[in-house]
Design a protein around this nucleic acid. Structure first.
Length: 398
RNA sequence: GGGUAGGUAGCGAAGCGGUCAAACGCAACAGACUGUAAAUCUGUCGACUUAGGUCUUCGGAGGUUCGAAUCCUUCCCUACCCA
């Protein structure tokens, strides 16, 4: 197999990375790979505790995809065994532990979603229970003896937890070692991860060295901010764009990101070429809105297809720029007269009667474009109209 | 095992017998302004309501009291210090 030249590869690999540790070793590995016509083994560990992937997770998957396109081998490790511990990274508290069944189940779902980005035919998937479950106590002690408590505690999360008087459960200290052991088990040349994974991934290097293997290089990718523009993207903060979401939502959410993030999203969240990326870099500030539309288009295209992406733009323009009613909105028929607030609640346009009342009072409800102000409004069963609650909730009544 | 400080709405955090559905901040939602950007301003932010109120909430369970998030008993949970 023939690989692109070293420099071509480096251009692609370096896109968006934070650190390559150490870069000269990576260069040597690539040179060797070209000379021997052997692909590098690229490791990505997946945490099976979160089955819903968002474009923040996609940052690292995109990078892995790029490696695949360069001809290298991607190995996705589903941490079914480590998932039972729960990665302490960035956590202030001990994570809940998954059962093995849950971990496997989540792992499958992870794979399904990850292969929306990765080349399925070139992705090897392995479960780390395959080797971790076979470690006996003697081997585990041997592994533990190669590291010191200080080394494990030096990572920020643990230091912070010590300082903030939060607990650290004993088993959590094992997490980095086990993840590092994965690298040894699959002989990885490169491990990818977010900057938050730097410590764990470096431990992988050490484990390999101590077991007499050539150590992997570590490539860290930035953590993508969520659509609120400040916090790291995460489902629990409700600032994430899920890769399995409806295309309209993906597009709409993309349009809501702060301008400062547009380039970063292009760089990390799309597969547009390095050349194109360089081309738009300085132009974004000229017309942020247009580039944001392009960004939304590219992201939708990545997870769906070109037609869907085009539709998303059109739909968006229709609703928010031309302020028209979207095409496919829920439609219901009334069998009898109902109070407006009940109608809102039963169609999930408000959480409770009180909430519905408050929305009406806040003039957030309109019928055929007319704002409704009567909290006790009753809708006659023969009426036919379209109502709108807030900016995004529509309902057609016939 | 001994000691100390705590557990309040999605989160953080006040309150320490009545004026508490519970200050304040963040988040969220809605309105104005916009490019559904950011920033800003305004309103809402337990539930039901015939709008007068009613009901359920302050770790759990009991109790004292006309009245408890606030006092007492007990149980559960967390952190820290000492061993």
């Amino acid at each position: 197999m023939n690989f692109p030249s070293l420099n071509e590869q480096l251009d692609v690999i370096k896109r968006g990375t934070v650190e390559i540790i150490p870069e000269d070793e990576l260069v040597k590995k690539i040179e060797k790979s070209i000379a021997k016509k052997t692909p590098l083994i690229i490791k990505l560990g997946a945490d099976p505790s979160r089955p819903d992937l968002h474009i923040g997770h996609a940052v690292v998957l995109n990078k892995l995809r790029q490696f695949q396109e360069l001809g290298h081998t991607a190995i996705l490790i589903i941490g079914d065994y480590t998932g039972m511990i729960g990665d302490p990274t960035g956590k202030k508290k001990t994570r809940p532990q998954l059962t093995h069944e849950e971990a496997i189940e989540n792992g499958k779902s992870y794979y399904e979603q990850a292969t929306k980005i990765l080349d399925k035919s070139k992705t090897k998937i392995v479960y780390n229970s395959e080797w971790l479950s076979k470690l006996d106590l003697k081997q585990l002690i041997q592994l533990m003896s190669k590291f010191t408590v200080q080394r494990i505690l030096e990572r920020d999360d643990f230091t912070n937890r010590l300082n903030e008087q939060a607990e650290i459960a004993f088993h959590e200290m094992l997490y980095p070692l086990m993840q590092g052991y994965d690298s040894y088990a699959i002989n990885s040349d490169v491990e990818l991860g977010g900057t938050d994974q730097k410590f764990n991934n470096l431990v992988g290097r050490d484990v390999q060295k101590r077991y007499g293997k050539e150590p992997q290089c570590v490539i860290t990718m930035p953590l993508l901010e969520g659509i609120d523009g400040s916090e790291k993207m995460s489902k629990s903060l409700d600032n994430a764009i899920g890769i399995s979401e409806d295309p309209k939502d993906i597009f709409g959410k993309t349009m809501r990101i702060p301008d400062a993030l547009i380039y970063k999203y292009f760089e990390l969240g799309t597969q547009i070429s390095v050349d194109e990326l360089n081309d738009i870099k300085d132009k974004i500030t000229e017309s942020p809105r247009d580039y944001k539309r392009k960004l939304g288009y590219e992201i939708v295209k990545l997870y769906y297809d070109e037609d869907t992406a085009k539709n998303s733009i059109e739909e968006f323009d229709k609703i928010f720029i031309k302020k028209e009613i979207p095409d496919d909105i829920p439609e219901i028929k009334l069998d009898e007269d109902v109070k407006l607030i009940n109608l809102m609640v039963s169609n999930k346009m408000a959480d409770s009667n009180s909430a519905a009342r408050k929305l009406i009072e806040a003039s957030a409800v309109s019928i055929d474009g007319e704002k409704v102000s009567d909290v006790n409004a009753v809708i006659g069963k023969d009426k036919s109209f379209t109502m709108k609650v807030g900016k995004r909730k529509f309902l057609k009544v016939n």
